[in-house]
Design a protein around this nucleic acid. Sequence first.
DNA 1: CCAGGCGAGTTTTTT
DNA 2: ACTCGCCTGG
Length: 764
Amino acid sequence: MDILAKLNPQQRLAVEHGRGPALVLAGAGSGKTRVIAYRIAYLIQNAAARPENILAVTFTNKAAKEMRERVQKIVGPSRRSEPLISTFHSFCVRLLRREIHHLGYKRDFSIYDTDDQTRLIKQVLEEIRNPDRELTPREVIGRISFAKNHGITPGQYTDRFLSDAAEDVQRLYEKYNERLRSSNSLDFDDLLLKSVAVLEKMPELRKYYGDWYSYILVDEYQDTNRPQYDLLRLLTTVHKNIFVVGDEDQSIYKFRGADIQNILKFEKDYPGARVIKLEQNYRSSQNILRLAGAVVENNTERKGKTLWTENESGDVVTCSCAQNPREEAVWVAGQIESLLEENPDYHVAVLYRANFLSRNFEDVLTDKGIPYAVVGSVAFFGRMEVKDLLAYLRIVFNPEDDVALLRIVNTPPRGIGQATVDILTEAALEKGVPILQALREKAGDPQLPARTARALLRFQELLDKWAALQDHVTISQLFETILQDIRYKEMLQKQESATEAENRLANIEELMHAAAESQQRGEAISEFLDRAALSSELDHLDPNARVALMTLHSAKGLEFESVFMVGMEEGLFPHAQCVNSREDLEEERRLCYVGITRAKRKLFLSWTPYRKSYGPEAGFAARISRFMMEMPRELLEGFETEPPTYFDQRPRFRNRFYEDSDEYRRTPGPQPKWSGIREDSTVRPKTIAELKIYIEEKQRSSRAASEGTQSSLFKPGMRVRHEQFGDGLVLSREKSGNDIKLVITFSRVGKKTLVERYAKLKAL
DNA sequence: CCAGGCGAGTTTTTT
DNA sequence: ACTCGCCTGG
């Protein structure tokens, strides 16, 4: 079969590319995945490479799965060998399970997800019970991850960062890494870093894997971060057969360390690279494309592509401004209802910036009896009961896994309480051994109360029993044994409400299914655990679901007949935390572009000024998203920058546009060009000195931003109204950490201390 | 040691 | 509005 016949000239050029580096700049809907799939098939059919010598990397499991299916469709099944199509992370796990001993780890290492990470950091924070400057676990993880993704080791940390907290972070970072290592565990970032490290350390492995994967293809290259970039370089040093596909307009993972420069400077990194642009869009109507283009045009960091399509011009975009979030959901559900009536096969997506927004839509869709699928708010493998059981499996598999041990040591309660756990942890830290080993040593200790010692011994016996079993039974059988031994289900039924328990039991059933399937595929326990650690809810999206609810981020790579982008408000989208630097704002805009271009035929945009929010914006009417202001009016129908009757409906919200207040004077109403964006403070730092300045600069600006919005609101002497406490008088305001505390005396309830950011106060 | 109650902190996006 | 950690009384 001539597989080239189905391609347009540009796509064909890409697919037929020979050896050497190639960059395919592929706009949304221009057949990106298609090009990779066809190229893999082409390489195989023309015997350029044996299938097993081809490596294709994607970012999500879902993308990998899709790619595999597409390739199989083209080349047909029953090949002797298959190309390796995998995510960066699972490729790394695969590599490390074979080679990590070169770095002094054992091959049974555990993988720590965000939750495990948080637990570990909390322990470390306790251990170094320093901070005069309170750091939350979240913040610490964020900084460590930033450092890891930028190649900064703990030792270099204070050289590179100058903030007050830097020394604390350095110590935490150091300890955290030590604890990971002594637990024989890796976090997500480590998977990439250790892969790079092992290839850097072992030239013969570099050569081996470089030779083996003689053709490497990368999807969504614009989202690669530094370790991923390093990994690709290491694997392609010799042959340079790297074929990357990406779209700088769809780079939306900077917060995770993605570096858009990777795609922008590809031609410099790989001299002589062939560059191919795919500009014909096959997905969307002309109007949708024009709208998307008009928005993304406002960005400066682009290579610049102009998408065109032969599709018809299509409908205009329908907008709605709702009285409140509930009404917004009602409107959306109503539209969906009539869409589905007309076309029962339509795929519809409701896209939002942040997960918490799904709530109202779920409620209303349920009321109306419209079936829907939510993607991602709580991942299946992230659920408490699932994580508990997996932790049992993990500790059996890797007895050094401290986080897993601490998670289950007293779940269900078995008489090993906090006091005992503290003793064990302390002993373990002192000797530098895993907690389980400390537990073994203490189990018979006559100094402990007899009851405690007995509890420890019993627990140890259980673990030994399961460990002895692990090589002789299937995963399901092991699970079944554990479940019975610990009486987990009974615990749930005792502790939870009936419906909650039922839910959790159902999840346990599902986990057992997953285990059974895994073993049918002939996988080892490690492979099952790896899948659990690396899988996300997105992978479980039911392709038959007509209505899908998800974040804009999750929607990348997907397409739908109709798309609803909801919550189009300043502060939410673009998110308040992303409007202070041009870089961040441009990323938000790209996110908007991604959202718009998911739609094939019909796009809906909705917003409401009256969303309950937290933070400094609380209690104020929001403004319409600047992204909507950037769209050509003639493509919009029902465009309103304010709801028609807000005065009667929602008196407790103040309105930014018309009220004569401090707030209003400081931030004038909507204008074509929005103020408040700092002009180009975001030159990319090149040297260490520049990086220091950059970080300082960022911190100062975010501090200034939060003080700026807060300081003008409530001052001593002002009269205010609180939703619950009624009217009162502000006595004092003072800073406490990042917050501002107000002491207010209320006529009804007396003196109260409130945090300005959270108390939904209203000036009188 | 554990269960149940209160107060504080919290919502950006994810492999 | 919701979850997590801390405190208290059994």
